[in-house]
């Protein structure tokens, strides 16, 4: 009897070990097996769809499949937290926004060191956001809105995807500069905010979903990107209007800290090419993503420079007193 038990147990142990085997990636043969990519937002959204499109292209270049695993929660922090503890062998990476590094850790404690726990690999898209109103709204330009808001404090209600989001920050910065008292109504995401706008319950929305702005179902007063958007050529940017702020949220790929530089190069090259390939291009067009190609070193600098800037803005807007997480 006990012999059977021993044999069986041994067999199970072997099977487990084989199942759990993860090789140490030697850069020269990278990748030798499929790569797992965590996506920190749920399926169907712009982050998930763009990550899938990008991987579809990248895996053709790398020669190994990229397996997508959804690890959402906490605005992206849960997935990043898991990545921070994974082995930096190049077989586990994650697609996440830059806000997981540059904004959320400032407001609450996260289970990783934003500037130290990761190897930034590649930033592939700039998220576009805009200020929109209903097509029958009396405000035809951003100036109309601002003048009305100045003259009628407490009357204008604007919706955003949540307190502290880049969309909220844009409106808050404008409000501060122009000395406007307008009311922020946070929603769980841009879609419910747009719904409330369309129902006439609020007056303006600072939104991260541009599909209705693109089709004209909603009127766009200004965009929050660095430069004018090709699909909305007549709409001014916040920078043009004189406000020293724009939404610089990026979609990017990260790996755990301490990755082999050759593996990093292989990945960033693959993703760079993947941006131009059809699977990703299709998605980018639909979601209105602005193409960016920032390789590892450049993106790392972006994050490190961005940290003190974000601290300054959030403190000035009285959203935080000091960063909730140490960067390193």
């Amino acid at each position: 009897m006990t012999n059977h038990l021993k044999k069986f147990g041994f067999f199970t142990l072997i099977v487990c070990v084989v199942m759990g085997f993860s090789g140490t990636g030697i850069a020269a043969d990278y990748p030798k097996k499929p790569v797992t990519m965590y996506v920190v937002f749920s399926p169907g959204g712009s982050m998930d769809s763009s990550a899938r499109g990008l991987s579809a292209g990248a895996e053709q270049i790398l020669g190994q499949p990229i397996v997508i695993v959804t690890k959402d929660g906490g605005g992206g922090t849960v997935g990043l937290g898991v990545l921070a503890n994974d082995a930096p062998d190049g077989y586990t990476i994650a697609a996440a926004t830059s806000t997981g590094i540059l904004r959320i850790p400032l407001r609450r404690k996260v289970p990783y060191k934003p500037l130290a726990s990761f190897t930034p690999l590649f930033a592939y898209a700039a998220v576009a956001s805009a200020t929109v109103v209903n097509p029958d709204s009396p405000f035809k330009t951003m100036q109309d809105l601002i003048e009305f808001a100045k003259a009628n404090p407490g009357k204008i209600k604007y919706g955003t995807a949540g307190a502290g989001s880049p969309m909220h920050l844009v409106m808050a910065v404008i409000g501060m500069k122009e000395n406007i008292n307008w009311i922020h109504v946070p929603f769980k995401g841009s879609a419910p905010a747009e719904t409330a706008l369309m129902g006439g319950h609020i007056d303006v929305v600072s939104t991260g979903d541009l599909d209705k702005a693109i089709t004209g179902q909603l009127r766009t007063l200004c965009v929050h990107t660095k430069e004018r958007m090709g699909i909305l050529p007549d709409v001014p940017t916040t920078l043009e209007l004189g406000y020293n702020y724009y939404n610089d949220t990026l979609f990017a790929i990260y790996g755990p800290a301490g990755m082999d530089p050759q593996v990093v190069k292989a990945l960033e090259d693959a993703f760079e090419k993947a941006v131009d390939m059809p699977p990703y291009q299709k998605v980018a067009k639909q979601f209105g993503l602005v193409p960016i190609k920032m390789k590892s070193a450049e993106y790392r600098k972006f994050l490190e420079d961005g940290w003190p800037q974000q601290v300054e803005i959030l403190t000035k807007l009285k959203l935080i007193e000091q960063p909730a997480t140490e960067p390193r």
Partner: peptide, 16 residues
């Protein structure tokens, strides 16, 4: 919402 993602990926924007 997930299905809407499918619409967008296919190139159709749901709406009027």
């Amino acid at each position: 919402a997930v299905i809407m993602g499918a619409f967008l990926i296919q190139g159709f924007i749901p709406g009027p």
